[in-house]
Write a protein that binds this DNA or RNA. Structure first.
Lengths: 342, 342
DNA sequence: CTGTTAGCGCTTTCAG
DNA sequence: CTGAAAGCGCTAACAG
């Protein structure tokens, strides 16, 4: 049983100043702009700071300086493997700056995204990174009103509020689909989860390529409105085999779905890639280790995160927010799951 | 190119008050404690708030009220599948409260954790949730000093600063190991990543059970100091087969490692579970869908998150922070990967 | 139920 | 290089 630290415990800037025999503002400077304080005074002050265990109050700082230094990252389903690299990129770029990151994981639900966005707005953010573009007008409107640069990441097929960085999901899907055709698959399905913006773009690309080849069949597009997972992949492959026994390949919403599909094939004795080809999306770490290894589309996630923060930093300098779209490109990684002899 | 919203754009409480013909505090109350304002006035005020697009300034609020309402969640590697359910639990409990959550993903590195902790401290947090117990004294010290309740989650084998909720990882490992023995495996390996606290506890349990059975062999404990992943599982199984060809089962650091081991077995034609048994940890979604499905230890992650927040809320009411350890228990989920006929 | 008065802890001027 | 004064936007505490 530990007692609550009382309010008077809190060490403030003036406490430190008093003990160090200087004014508060000098302590403040010693902490934030060491160059502007004489070395000896600075050292003395920092020593007192250490001794007293002074911790700056960010709320007070934000209020006085009108600068929270906070960058909000809003994403539905923050916690998927796909975000690991993204977050690493973000943090690596933030570390040497004086910004700080706050993540919010919203539901893909519009109402929840609005809630989280308003919450960020309440904190005078220095920037906003938005992942889950839905095209919802209320969200767009709120983003446009944001008094800070906004970077929409992952997909760049949409005109962004300010800036966007990522890849063109439609083109990526076209590449994947073309690959499956080249490998000799003809009855190609698309297995997916909820149709968010990126998924819709991919469907467009998928459809366009198959139609051009005279191979598109809407009955081969299967999805359910739930989040993508291994279980979903398993389930959808099951449905596919029942509804369209002649299907011979699947372009999956992501690698989890692809993995589920792969397992289900194994369970049914469907040989991958001979009887059935599988292509995932994202190129997560495990894709290369699966057996057979899974063909996927590699997305430069680390770089997207890193550069998104970079764009915010640059935009903060100027007084305006440049309209800008950065295409980082994707890469097809052909592996065992589509390595059929042609 | 969008112009920066100017400072004077910002609508403040008094702007709203003025337009509504009341005082600032009344607007403040209408927003936070609607009951204390007459219905008609309240409606009028809320209408003006809406019209003017007023957004409260959380920094000012936190400063004035000495209450940030912020709960910090610090975890190394926030972004693993294992955290999905945890975060859902946290958010579900937070939603109806007036708290807000801020996640920080630290490296498992002590220095980085300290950095992030100090950062939380700078914000007068209402509570702290800590995942990556390392037993590091500097971190413990900082947590002890925190002027708010602290809940350490996932493992409960350690005396916490205030409170802890989770499972006993040592016991869980004992159960898993016993299961492998019961299934007739005798040369049981342990495959792991970095030896964080939880992993060490599991090793203890693993070792204790095998020693009691006269089966422990240190040569079968393989790990590398890198984060656990499918690739690692694959790699470690490869090493295991080389160094100890007679090994016949593995208790893995988590399901990712188990999956990697499973793939590697398939690649080598090692039949699972007949030739080799595999047990994972966490019981992630995909464990049940793999082929063969993967035996694992189910950890009540959603509930841990939900109740951790709950503990903070309750502790905030009282003036003291109860020393408390909550054991939520785990469950062995026996599946195909260890289903050897005995 | 509503308003007045004082700050919260820090930083921004503007002077020395 | 250092300091004094003022105030960021909001809410506690007390009045009415």
């Amino acid at each position: 049983m530990r007692r609550r630290r009382q309010r008077q415990d809190k060490v403030t800037l003036s406490d430190v100043a008093q003990k160090a025999g200087v004014s508060a503002i000098t302590v403040s400077r010693a902490l934030r702009e060491p160059d502007k304080v004489s070395p000896q005074l600075r050292d003395a002050i920092l020593k007192v700071v250490e001794e007293m265990g002074y911790v700056p109050d960010l709320a007070a700082r934000a209020l006085a300086s009108k600068n929270s230094g906070l960058v909000g990252v809003l994403s539905p389903g923050l916690t998927t493997h796909a975000f690991l690299a993204l977050i690493r990129g973000i943090e690596d770029r933030v570390r040497p700056s004086d910004l700080r990151i706050q993540y919010a994981s919203s539901d893909s639900d519009t109402e929840d995204q609005l809630r989280q966005l308003r919450f960020f707005m309440s904190q005078n953010p220095a920037g906003l990174i938005h992942v889950g573009q839905t095209g919802d007008p209320a969200i767009e409107d709120l983003l446009r009103r944001a008094p800070c640069p906004v970077v929409e990441i992952m997909d760049i097929s949409r005109q962004p509020t300010d800036m966007a960085i990522g890849i063109d999901h439609r083109l990526a899907a076209e590449t994947a689909t073309r690959h499956l055709i080249e490998k000799g698959y003809r009855r190609i399905a698309m297995l997916g989860g909820a149709w968010d913006l990126r998924a819709r773009r991919r469907l467009e690309g998928f459809k366009a390529v198959l139609e051009a080849a005279g191979l598109f069949d809407p009955a081969l597009v299967l999805s359910v409105d739930s989040s993508s997972s291994v279980g979903l992949g398993s389930h959808l492959l099951d449905r596919l085999v029942t509804e369209a026994p002649d299907a011979d390949a699947a372009f999956c919403h992501n690698d989890d779905v692809a993995l589920g599909a792969l397992f289900e094939c194994q369970r049914r004795g469907l040989a991958v890639p001979t009887d059935f080809g599988i292509c995932g999306f994202n190129d997560l770490e495990y894709a290369g280790f699966a057996f057979p290894s899974i063909t996927s589309i590699r997305v430069p996630r680390y770089e997207i995160g890193y550069r998104a923060v970079d764009m915010i930093i640059r935009a903060s300098g100027s007084g305006t927010y440049p309209a800008k779209i950065v295409d980082l490109g994707y890469q097809l990684v052909a592996r065992g799951s589509t390595a059929r002899q042609t």
